[in-house]
C-alpha cells in the first residue's frame, strides 16, 4: 500500500498546551513492502508522523495519502476509519491499551470494530496469538494477569488481528529484555518479508534500525532531513554527528579498525555478521 505525504504541517493541542508546528512541510513517499526506520532526537516529530498516517493527527495544511484515501484537515470520520483498517498502529507501551475480560476479547476488539464476524474474529485471535509466539491457552485468561512481555505481545496481536497492510510501530521493544526484543523484531521482519507488509518503525535504537530496516527517515525539528537507505545513512559519519545519531557497534568497530590498520573494508558493515564476513574476507587476501 502506497503511502504519500505532501507538504504536511501539523500542530498539536492537548488541554492548554499548544505545540506549534510539530511537523513542518513534510513530504515523504513510502513504497509498499519496505521496512522503514524513522529516527531522530526526542521531539523531532517522529510519533506525530505516525499519527498523521493513521488520521489521529490531521494535517493543518498539505495532505497525506494512504492507498487511494486522502487525509487532510477535512477528511470524514468514515474515511479515517477505512485508513485505520489498513494501518495497524502499535503505540509506545501498547500494553496500556488492554481492557477486555479475556485476551481473546481484547484481540477481537479491532477486527470486530472493522466489521469482522464473531467467528472470523475468533479464528483471527487464535491465529495471531500463535504468531506472536504465545500459547493458545492464554486466550481465556485476563490480560491483566499476564507478565509485562506477554501483555506486550497480546497488544501487538490485537493490532495485527485487524489484518493491516501497513504496520506503524512506535518503539515497540522499549522496556523488553534483549531476547524478547530480538524475537519481536525478527517477527516484524518476517512479516515484512513473507507477507509484504509495509513496516514503519519509530526507534531511538540505531542497532535495531541498522539490523532490521532497509530505509531510514531522519527527522529533526519537525522536518524530514534524510530519506534513503539505512546503509548509506550509516556510511556518512558526518551526517550522523550532525543529527546526533548513534553509530551501530559493528560500524563503530569497523571505523576504528580502518583508522588503526589502514585497511579499508569493502562495504559498510551494520551487523556483527557482516563485519565478521568482511574481516575474514580481508584476512584471506
Amino acid at each position: 500500500m502506497q503511502i504519500r505525504l505532501n507538504q504536511v504541517s501539523a500542530d498539536y493541542q492537548l488541554g492548554p498546551v499548544h505545540s506549534p508546528r510539530v511537523l513542518q512541510d513534510v513530504s515523504l513517499q513510502i513504497a509498499p513492502g519496505t521496512f522503514t526506520a524513522v529516527v531522530g532526537p526526542t521531539g523531532a516529530g517522529k510519533s506525530s508522523l505516525l499519527k498523521v498516517l493513521n488520521g489521529l493527527l490531521l494535517p493543518k495544511s498539505g495532505w497525506a495519502e494512504v492507498g487511494d484515501i486522502k487525509i487532510d484537515s477535512k477528511t470524514s470520520k468514515k474515511a479515517l476509519k477505512a485508513v485505520r483498517k489498513h494501518i495497524g498502529m502499535v503505540f509506545q507501551f501498547p500494553e496500556s491499551q488492554l481492557f477486555a475480560e479475556t485476551v481473546e476479547q481484547d484481540i477481537s476488539f479491532g477486527p470486530l470494530n472493522f466489521g469482522a464476524s464473531p467467528e472470523a474474529a475468533h479464528d483471527l485471535a487464535i491465529k495471531m496469538i500463535r504468531q506472536v509466539g504465545l500459547d493458545e491457552s492464554i486466550l481465556q485468561q485476563s490480560p491483566f494477569s499476564l507478565s509485562g512481555g506477554q501483555k506486550r505481545r497480546v497488544a501487538i496481536a490485537g493490532v495485527l488481528a485487524q489484518e493491516p497492510e501497513v504496520i506503524a510501530l512506535d518503539e515497540p521493544t522499549a522496556g523488553l529484555d534483549p531476547s524478547g526484543k530480538a524475537e519481536l523484531m525478527s517477527l516484524f521482519k518476517q512479516w515484512n518479508k513473507c507477507k509484504r507488509l509495509t513496516v514503519i518503525l519509530v526507534t531511538h535504537d540505531m542497532e535495531t534500525a541498522a539490523r532490521y530496516a532497509d530505509d531510514a527517515v531522519v527527522m529533526d525539528q519537525g522536518k524530514v532531513v534524510y530519506h534513503g537507505s539505512v546503509r548509506s545513512l550509516f556510511a556518512d559519519s558526518e551526517k550522523l554527528n550532525r543529527w546526533q545519531l548513534d553509530v551501530p557497534e559493528a560500524r563503530r568497530f569497523q571505523l576504528a579498525f580502518e583508522t588503526y590498520s589502514g585497511i579499508r573494508l569493502p562495504n559498510v558493515c551494520l551487523t556483527e555478521e557482516e563485519l565478521a564476513e568482511a574481516l575474514i574476507g580481508v584476512g584471506r587476501v
Partner: peptide
C-alpha cells in the same frame, strides 16, 4: 488514540 487506531 490507541483504541481509535483499533477502529473504536
Amino acid at each position: 488514540d490507541a483504541q481509535k487506531a483499533r477502529g473504536a
